[in-house]
């Protein structure tokens, strides 16, 4: 089998007991491409994300393989998969300052306190948050926190990005701005990205392929 660059889901099926949540799916996400996964709640969107992270609850059974740039990650624990995740909540660690949150994400291979700190400051600069290094995450606005969360994910040097409704809690105006910010950074780094959302405008802005989940499963139940 030839493995393309980017993310490849190869013949993935996920079921809960007798219910096939995700029927056999093969999907490629090219570097820099944002594929959107949509569907009503309860149709397996978060199940798919959990599967990609390797954190599927034992009640589910899954088959198939996940490749990132040709590397089979299906059996790896989440910390070895090199997946960057952004959730609805920014999940900045409240016991660390903004800068420390970024330091925490930097790989061990970046040595030296000053070099690490410089990189963190640089990331803040890029996010338009220069001078926020010492601030506590709690003192930031929602939009600022979302930007720090993205920079933190990017600093850990992931190979793909998963976006789990990352704009859902932002108000409409802010949503457009942050969406542009996130998508621009993903494009600049050519990261294969999977976006899970309720909001069709997210999908339109992403401009990539669209995967609809769950129509069949819901029909079954009703």
């Amino acid at each position: 089998m030839k493995h393309p660059d980017g993310l490849l889901l190869h013949r993935v099926t996920i079921s809960l007991g007798a219910l096939a949540l995700i029927p056999e799916t093969t999907l490629t996400v090219a570097p820099g491409e944002i594929t959107t996964v949509m569907g009503p709640s309860g149709t397996g969107k978060s199940t798919l994300l959990n599967y990609l992270c390797g954190t599927l609850a034992p009640a589910f059974s899954a088959s198939g393989q996940i490749f990132i740039h040709g590397r089979d990650i299906s059996a790896l624990p989440i910390e070895k998969r090199r997946i960057g995740i952004l959730f609805q909540d920014d999940l900045l660690f409240p016991h660390m300052s903004v800068g420390e949150n970024l330091l925490f994400a930097l790989p061990r291979s970046v040595k030296g306190r000053h070099r690490r700190q410089d990189l963190a400051e640089q990331a803040l600069d890029e996010a338009g948050l220069a001078g926020y290094y010492q601030r506590s995450p709690g003192t930031l606005s929602g939009g600022q926190r979302a930007r720090v969360a993205l920079m933190r994910t990017l600093l850990s040097n992931p190979e793909i990005i998963l976006l789990d409704e990352p704009f859902a809690k932002l108000d409409t105006e802010l949503r457009t701005v942050i969406r542009q910010f996130v998508f621009a950074h993903i494009a600049a780094r050519a990261l294969p990205t999977l976006l899970v959302t309720h909001d069709i405008r997210d999908a339109e802005a992403a401009g990539g392929p669209l995967l609809s989940l769950g129509a069949r499963a819901t029909d079954h139940q009703s």
Partner: peptide, 27 residues
């Protein structure tokens, strides 16, 4: 939010043990 906190740290590459000690325990 223990689960999400751990998941975030682990997605940044931290082992479960390191993640628990560094981001859960201090909180």
């Amino acid at each position: 939010p223990t689960r999400e906190t751990l998941l975030t740290a682990r997605s940044l590459g931290y082992s479960p043990v390191a993640a628990w000690l560094k981001v859960v325990l201090p909180r």
